[in-house]
Design a protein around this nucleic acid. Structure first.
Lengths: 207, 207
DNA sequence: TGGAATCGAGACGTATAGTATCGTAATCCC
DNA sequence: GGGATTACGATACTATACGTCTCGATTCCA
C-alpha cells in the first residue's frame, strides 16, 4: 500500500522483506514529490493538479512518481497525511480544550489554501471506495486529540458518560466544515468560541 | 417531431429581450440534457462525468450543450438546482420540524447517489469563485425551510430570540454533512433523531 | 420565401493520464 | 573490482476528454 511506502523509510525498494539488489529509491525524490504536491495543491487546487506539474516542480520524472503511487489520488492522500492536524490542548475544561484546538487547527490549516484538499478528497471517495479505505485511518488519527478531550471531560465528570463521543465530535467539527467548504464562508477565529458554546449548550439551551 | 415547442424560459434564445429570429432552442433538448446529467452523475459521479457522455445519453450534439452552458460545471450546477431540497414541515415544535425535515431530506436525496454532487461542487468552488456565486443562491434557497422552522420556534417563544439562526442551522446540518461526505458513513434515518436532540440540548446538557 | 438561429453529428487541436523506453547512475553480491 | 539489478530523469507514445468549429438540415419569424 501507499502507507507502507511512506512510513519513514520512503526510499525502500519495492519488495519490503525479500532480496533486493539495485539502486534504492531516493528518499529525496520521495519527499520532493510530496512537497511539490502540497505546494501545487495550494496554488492551483486539486482538480487542476497535474502529475506532470508535480514531476516538473519536484525535479523528477513522471515514472518516478508512478513507481511509488499508482495514480494521482493516492499521491494526494499521502501528501494530505503530512498536513497539520489537531494538536492536543489540555486546558482543564472541555470548553477550553475545544476552543483552543479549533483555533489552532483553523489558523494552521483550515484557513490556508491547503484546506481545499479536504473537499476534493471527500468528492472522490464517494465513487471510489478504495480511496475511502486509504483515507479513513488518516482522518481518524487527525481527529484523535478531539476525542481525547471529550474522554478527559468524561473522566472529570464534566460530561455525561453516556454521550456518544463520535457524534459529539461531529457536532463540533460539522458546522465549521459546512461553512468553510460547502458555503465558502471564511471563519474568523473569534467565531469559533461562539460555535463551541452553541454546540456545548445546545441550540435550545439559549446563550 | 410534431411536439409543441414552447419557447419557455428554459430554452430561451440567447438574447433575452431583443429581437430574435431563427429556430428557437428546443426545450426538450434542454430538459433531456439536465436529466441525462443527473442520471450520469449518480452513475459515475462528478469527476467521471463527461460532456460527451451527457450529449450521447441525452441524444443531442455537444454544441447544443455548450450553446447553453459554458462548461461542465455550470451545467452540473443547473442540474443540481433540480434536485429535491428540504421540504417544509410544520409539526408544532422545533424538534419535530427538524426531525421530519431531516428524515425526508435524507431519504429523498442524501441517501441517493445523487448526493455525491454536493462534495464535488464544494471541491470546485474552493478554486473557482464564479462557481461559488452561482451556487450560493441555490444553497440558500434549499435551506430556507430549515431557517423558517427556527424562526417559527422563535415566534412561539420556544427559542431564544438572540439565537444566530444561521449558526444553529449549520449546527444541525453540519454533522450530517461531515458523516456523509467526509467520513463516508451511511446515516440511518433513526440516527437523525439523536443528532437533532444532541444539537438542540447541547453536548453538555445531558443525554 | 428568405434570413436567422437552431438542430445532431462529428472533425479538430490541445491537454493530461498513465505506460513504455531511452541511456545513465547507484547499490548489492560475488 | 566487476557484473547484475534496480532506480534515475527524460521523453515518446496511446487513449481520452475538453471545448471549438463546421456541416447540411430543420424550424421559426417577418
Amino acid at each position: 500500500m501507499a502507507a507502507s511506502e511512506r512510513t519513514g523509510n520512503g526510499g525502500r525498494p519495492r519488495n519490503g522483506g525479500s532480496a533486493s539488489a539495485g539502486r534504492p529509491r531516493s528518499e529525496e525524490a520521495h519527499q520532493a514529490i510530496l512537497d511539490a504536491t502540497l505546494v501545487l495543491l495550494s496554488e492551483v487546487g486539486f482538480s487542476a493538479l497535474t502529475v506532470e506539474g508535480v514531476a516538473s516542480r519536484a525535479g523528477v520524472g513522471k515514472a518516478t512518481i508512478y513507481r511509488r503511487w499508482p495514480s494521482k489520488l493516492p499521491l494526494v492522500v499521502d501528501a494530505f497525511g503530512q498536513l497539520p492536524a489537531f494538536e492536543d490542548a489540555d486546558t482543564g475544561s472541555l470548553e477550553g480544550d475545544l476552543k483552543a484546538m479549533l483555533r489552532q487547527y483553523l489558523e494552521n490549516f483550515l484557513a490556508t489554501p491547503l484546506a481545499t484538499v479536504y473537499p476534493s478528497l471527500a468528492a472522490e471517495r464517494a465513487h471510489n471506495p478504495a480511496l475511502g479505505e486509504l483515507m479513513d485511518p488518516l482522518l481518524k488519527g487527525r481527529r484523535r486529540p478531539l476525542d481525547a478531550a471529550f474522554r478527559r471531560a468524561q473522566a472529570r465528570g464534566e460530561l455525561a458518560s453516556g454521550i456518544d463521543i463520535e457524534m459529539a465530535s461531529d457536532l463540533i467539527v460539522g458546522p465549521i466544515a459546512v461553512r468553510l467548504f460547502f458555503r465558502g464562508t471564511t471563519i474568523h477565529p473569534d467565531m469559533v468560541d461562539g460555535m463551541v458554546e452553541l454546540a456545548l449548550r445546545g441550540v435550545r439551551g439559549g446563550s
